[in-house]
């Protein structure tokens, strides 16, 4: 196991940040800690890094108890949301900082920094200062700086949170490819479910100081363990006692067996796909379906039209969910 967190609790005064949290991060994986702000995910990451001390519980990094180690002895790399660039140092000196601290020979530092700058695609910017870089470049510099000392684990605290949407998309993609190259055990904290789903192979969903569910992105989507995960990960229609994802709602002929009568209330084009807002005849239940263009064209839907809906794929909350935790 890359990282093991056992029964960790942390309070700040009267506020409980973490309540008996246990997680395992497999070696070489890219795991996301996903949750709304205040869910405790950043505190958990900072405890793994040694920037906060847990009130109870323990942290193991590559099998070694790190609970009482200061940050500099844990062998972790950390990337902050606001870059934490050393403003008075050049990009080269920023990236080489950890190596210089370890008294590495100058020539070796130079070679290694050049390698890393190539890796994060900042070649040619080595002599610039952080203030002369864009936000995305600064964050890539921070990543190179963290990787320079060969950390056993890489911890990223909302690394793309301060960047604009387009740069964020690019960096997500880039981070995933980078991870395929360097394979260091990586934990990414984010509040953006799309980001977590896109980048990571495993997601730990947190809410109110607890872990709600752990699983592969598809598991969380298909088999949410709780109402919270269901609502937080992906779009959902809530039915009495059950839920169904909008793309699982099938539109059919009302006379077909298993289909119920419903009325099309509104059609809403959302880029590539279309949102069809429906009202079930039987009880007035409102829900919506997500349709691809060809399907929409085939059905030729109009507002006010009478259609059938097939909700066979609707599930009860918690069904199969226990399997999801071990599926990854």
């Amino acid at each position: 196991m890359g990282i093991v967190v056992r029964n960790v609790g942390k309070r700040f005064g009267a506020y409980t940040a973490l309540e008996d949290v246990s997680i395992e991060v497999p070696d070489g994986s890219l795991t996301a800690l996903l949750g709304p702000s205040g869910s405790g995910k950043s505190t958990l990451l900072r405890i793994v890094a040694g920037l906060e001390t847990p009130d109870r519980g323990s942290v193991l990094i590559e099998g070694r108890d790190a609970t009482n180690l200061p940050p500099q002895e844990r062998g972790v790399g950390f990337v902050f949301q606001h870059y934490a660039a050393f403003k008075h140092m050049t990009v080269r000196d920023n990236v080489g900082f950890g190596l210089r601290i370890r008294k590495a020979p100058k020539a070796q530092v130079r070679t290694r920094v050049d390698e890393l700058l190539g890796l994060v695609q900042l070649d040619g910017l080595a002599e610039r200062y952080p203030s002369q870089l864009s936000g995305g470049q600064r964050q890539r510099m921070a990543l190179a700086r963290a990787l320079a000392v060969e950390p056993r684990v890489l911890l990223l605290d909302e690394p793309f949170g301060a960047l604009d949407a387009r740069v964020r998309e690019e960096l997500r993609d880039w981070l995933r490819r980078l991870h395929e190259q360097v394979h260091v055990t990586t934990v990414l904290v984010t509040h953006d479910q799309e980001e977590a789903m896109e980048v990571s192979s495993r997601i730990v969903v947190m809410n109110h100081a607890r872990v709600e569910q752990v699983g592969a992105p598809a598991d969380l989507y298909e088999r949410p363990a709780s109402d919270f995960v269901m609502g937080f990960v992906g779009k959902v229609n809530r039915l009495p006692g059950a839920y169904i994802r909008p793309h699982e709602v099938r539109i059919c002929d009302p006379r077909e067996p298993g289909c119920e009568a419903a009325e099309v209330e509104r059609l809403l084009a959302l880029g590539f796909e279309t949102r069809v807002e429906l009202r079930r005849r039987r009880d007035g239940q409102r829900l919506w379906a997500q349709l691809a263009p060809d399907e929409l064209a085939r059905l030729g839907l109009e507002p006010g039209q009478e259609v059938g809906i097939d909700l066979a794929r609707a599930r009860r909350i918690g069904d199969e969910a226990l399997l999801a935790g071990t599926a990854a």
Partner: peptide, 9 residues
């Protein structure tokens, strides 16, 4: 910045 430096050793 100080925390980053500590983590870097």
């Amino acid at each position: 910045q100080e925390q980053a430096a500590r983590i870097l050793g």
